[in-house]
């Protein structure tokens, strides 16, 4: 038998736990015990966690570079002729409000989905690889509650990404080019103020476009404890869907692709704005959210957490 530890009291003092039972018991059940934080508390905490991450800001900064590059290039090298380069590019020199839209057109095929894949692929797999998933679950966060919160946080990033491109594009356009009433595709003209609102609507359209991909990323993230794997799989799917969308022989699949309506936001630049494509796109994304969100929930609800 080893000798009894003589200094239990000394140890406690050394710990600075002079408050004896205090510590945790400080929150001991008192009659007016405050109520626990609900879903909003977890959502706020997880959103703050996303934006306290250096990586998140690096991706947003990279997205912001796109309109800046476009604006500077046109300012330096002069306006491009109509029909060449991405849509709206030829409009930029005449009206700085088009910088943001042009940048979204450039970012949507690859760069934007890439950042969405990083965030959505990291949702569960990232926590698993850090080991924090087990501590969130035994808190207890609740599996479906955590999964939904993680998805909403990924959706918040979609909005932040689209907004970043629009806002930075508008600002740099304002600085480098004349700003004026916007001539619409249908020939009419709207004021700068309404032009800005239309820009926000386009930002919203692009953000909604990314929700289906986010759901795919969420599902991929429940399949692995290696976040890079989930991110890569998600990004690859975004590219594959666009390739399939470009093959006429596979036209019957096109209406079902989550990428099918990614570029239909031009309808928002008609007079009056056509919200039909916005609604169609939202429906399409909702279907993908339902399918992949369901798969993610099914997978995550019963999965053994071994990380």
């Amino acid at each position: 038998m080893s000798s009894p530890e003589p200094a239990a009291g000394v140890g406690a003092v050394g710990l600075g736990a002079a408050n004896g039972h205090g510590g945790t018991a400080a929150a001991a059940p008192d009659p007016a015990r405050p109520r626990g934080g609900g879903l909003a508390s977890l959502l706020a905490s997880e959103t703050a966690t996303l934006f306290r991450r250096w990586r998140t800001w690096a991706m947003l900064a990279a997205l912001a570079l796109i309109p800046i590059l476009i604006a500077i290039a046109i300012r330096v090298a002069g306006p491009s002729s109509p029909g060449r380069g991405p849509a709206f590019l030829d409009q930029v020199a005449g009206n700085g409000l088009f910088v943001g839209v042009t940048a979204l057109v450039v970012a949507t095929p690859l760069f934007l989905p890439l950042t969405i894949a990083v965030v959505s692929g990291d949702t569960i797999a990232g926590e698993a690889s850090l080991g924090t998933l087990r501590y969130l679950l035994i808190a207890p966060a609740g599996r479906l509650r955590l999964l939904s919160v993680k998805y909403v946080v990924a959706a918040v990033f979609c909005a932040a990404a689209a907004l970043t491109v629009i806002v930075v594009g508008t600002l740099i356009g304002w600085v480098l080019f004349p700003i004026g009433p916007v001539t619409l595709l249908s020939g009419g003209e709207i004021s700068v103020g309404e032009g800005l609102l239309r820009l926000l609507a386009i930002g919203a359209y692009v953000a909604v476009s990314m929700l289906g991909l986010s759901a795919i990323g969420l599902f991929a993230s429940t399949l692995t404890v290696v976040p890079v794997g989930a991110m890569a799989a998600t990004a690859i799917l975004a590219v594959v869907a666009q390739i399939i969308g470009a093959i006429p022989q596979l036209e019957w699949t096109h209406p079902f692709l989550f990428t099918d309506r990614w570029f239909d936001f031009a309808d928002l630049l008609r007079s009056p704005p056509s919200w039909e494509s916005f609604g169609d796109n939202a429906m399409l994304q909702a279907a993908w959210i339902a399918v992949f969100g369901g798969l993610a929930a099914w997978r995550f609800a019963t999965r053994d957490i071994l990380s």
Binding site: G14, L15, G16, A17, N19, G22, G23, T24, A26, A27, R33, P34, R35, G36, G37, G38, L39, S41, L42, A44, S45, E46, T49, T132, Y135, L136, A139, P140, A141, G142, R145, L146
Partner: peptide, 28 residues
């Protein structure tokens, strides 16, 4: 710690900062 605490729906946000500080104090 605040993050894990927020995941516990029974943990009150109003006392969170204090409970985190107490727990940190208790382990030095």
């Amino acid at each position: 710690l605040a993050r894990f605490d927020a995941a516990d729906r029974h943990a009150a946000p109003s006392t969170r900062a204090r409970r985190v500080a107490d727990a940190l104090d208790r382990v030095g």
